[in-house]
């Protein structure tokens, strides 16, 4: 498949992720959108890696996955703390500090 397809696909996924982060109100969905962004990047990296015949891109994907896991762990921990304090996962409860 031409490389362009991958670029467009991952761009589309990335944009969906970005929009999701910006527009969704539920924290968990926002988390998922962030993951979507990262996975769009992974897809792109793998596509380029295959295109260039260079393994570095795939190794980078490993790094991204590892880091994303750590990030999600921390993010969910934060979410749980928030949930314990507010009993809600709606982003609206986070309005004590004005944007």
């Amino acid at each position: 498949m031409p490389l362009n397809y991958y670029i467009w696909l991952s761009t589309a996924l990335f944009v969906i992720g970005v929009l999701g982060v910006l527009y969704r109100r539920n924290i968990i969905i926002i988390f998922m959108c962030i993951e979507l962004m990262l996975n769009a990047v992974n897809l792109l990296l793998v596509a380029f890696s295959a295109h260039h015949g260079d393994g570095a891109g795939q190794v980078f994907v490993f790094f991204i996955m590892a880091v994303a896991a750590a990030e999600v762990a921390v993010g969910l921990a934060i979410l749980i703390v928030i949930y314990n304090n507010t009993r809600s996962t709606d982003i609206k409860v986070l309005n004590k500090l004005k944007w």
Binding site: G17, V21, I34, M37, V41, I64, V67, I82, L97
Partner: peptide
């Protein structure tokens, strides 16, 4: 909590952009 969450959110959001940029440059 809220500070932490917002920092997290914006941090990972920014990371997304950074990574996408890295991927394109790698490409």
């Amino acid at each position: 909590n809220e500070a932490s969450f917002k920092y997290f959110l914006m941090g990972s959001f920014a990371t997304g952009f950074l990574l996408f940029g890295i991927a394109l440059i790698y490409g």
